[in-house]
Simulated assay, not measured.
Amino acid sequence: MELKSMDTVEMPLFGSTLKLMKFWSYLFVHNWRRYVAMGPYIMINCTQYVDIYLSTESLDFIIRNVYLAVLFTNTIVRGVLLCVQRGSYERFIEMLKSYYVQLLESKDPVVANLVAEATRLSLFISRINLLMGTCTCIGFVTYPIFGSERVLPYGMYLPTIDEYKYATPYYEIFFVIQAIMAPMGCCMYIPYTNMIVTFTLFAILMCQVLQHKLRSLEKLKGEQVRKEIISCIRFQLKLAGLVSSMNSLNTHLHLVEFLCFGAMLCVLLFSLIIAQTIAQTVIVIAYMVMIFANSVVLYYVANELYFQSLDIAIAAYESNWMDFDVDTQKMLKFLIMRSQKPLAILVGDTYSMNLKMLQSLLNAIYSFFTLLRRVYG
């Protein structure tokens, strides 16, 4: 297959992520699957909050239902955002595809190796996230089996129906329905995370390619240097535009997920305190690992982009700029000055997403957990 005719959905960098998006008709396709996926989840999420409000169950099940309700809400927000901004996401992916094809067509072996490494890392993260999502789905279904009471995988308020009554098949019917919907939710939640991670990894790749181009200036002479620097400046503008587009698409969702992550981790830590059996403890820990790993990956790649963008200025300075003429030095200085402002994934269009921000959140969560342990421990 020629690179220029490459199907956007089949870009190696994304693995199966865009195929799942296309299957559920969130991107590139508009059909009934989107509503089959979203409709039941929205209804169930509403019944979850009503069930929490009216619940008379033990505290550990209420806490777990709160966690699942927040997780469902986060999943729905992702789906709604994709539906509302479908055109913007598709245009962004098409733009990313054009940049990706240009890098694939490069005859520079270093660039080829950088592209191959970014693709391998993206596929690895995608598979790990899908594996953790599968384990979490299994946890949803198996958690009630180890409980001391008869409960569904996640709470639902069903007016006029007693789903726990032994003389009726309601419990078994709703258990099967919820078991089927768990992997559907995973296919909505995980691919979006993988897509955002891939966007950021590609921005990191562009930073690394630009650094390589700047360090290779010493191999050029005369007018070739000037042309290459102009090419690097244009490449830098493309990179800045790519990150700016990413922020316009996702910055407000990052804020919602930042708050949801803190809330869910607090709930899970509390569930760990009041877990009744070893099996329940193991499943709660599995939930924590999945949520934590998803967030750490996002914050880690965003942190890497931040520092890789700063390294562009270092790469430019490490070139043999002393041998350039004055006009060429001025152009290189312009590029260095632009690189002094790091490229950052923004949370709420205000705060840079990085490991320092994640550490601050974890410190706050641990303080809250310590308080809860003193009160209920």
Results as ranks from 00 to 15, higher is better:
Y41W: 11
Y41R: 08
I42W: 11
M43V: 12
N45M: 10
C46M: 12
Y49N: 01
V50T: 07
D51F: 09
I52K: 00
Y53V: 06
L54M: 07
L54P: 01
S55C: 06
S55Q: 10
T56E: 13
D60S: 04
D60A: 00
I62A: 03
I62D: 06
R64P: 03
R64W: 03
N65W: 02
V66E: 12
L68N: 13
A69T: 00
V70L: 01
L71S: 14
L71C: 12
F72N: 01
F72T: 02
F72M: 07
N74S: 15
I76Q: 08
V77N: 09
V77L: 15
R78V: 11
R78C: 11
R78H: 13
R78E: 12
V80I: 15
L81V: 08
V84F: 13
V84Y: 15
Q85V: 01
R86S: 00
G87A: 03
G87E: 14
S88T: 11
E90Q: 12
E90K: 04
R91C: 09
R91S: 14
F92I: 05
I93A: 02
E94M: 08
E94V: 10
L96I: 14
L96S: 09
S98A: 05
S98W: 10
Y99T: 06
Y99W: 11
Y100M: 00
Y100H: 07
V101A: 00
Q102R: 11
Q102E: 15
L103D: 14
L104C: 12
L104V: 03
E105H: 07
E105T: 05
E105V: 04
K107R: 07
D108E: 07
P109A: 01
V110T: 15
V111K: 10
A112N: 09
A112W: 08
N113P: 03
N113Q: 13
V115E: 01
E117A: 08
E117M: 04
E117I: 05
A118V: 01
R120T: 11
S122T: 10
S122H: 13
L123T: 11
L123D: 10
I125K: 04
S126M: 09
S126E: 14
R127C: 01
I128K: 09
L130T: 12
L130M: 13
M132F: 13
C135K: 08
T136E: 13
T136H: 06
C137H: 09
I138R: 05
F140E: 10
F140D: 11
V141T: 15
V141G: 03
V141I: 15
T142L: 14
T142A: 13
T142F: 12
Y143Q: 12
P144M: 06
G147P: 04
G147C: 13
S148G: 14
S148T: 15
R150P: 05
P153Q: 09
P153S: 06
Y154V: 06
G155Q: 04
M156D: 04
M156P: 05
M156K: 02
Y157E: 06
Y157P: 08
P159G: 03
P159D: 07
P159H: 02
T160R: 06
Y164T: 07
K165L: 03
A167K: 10
T168N: 13
P169C: 03
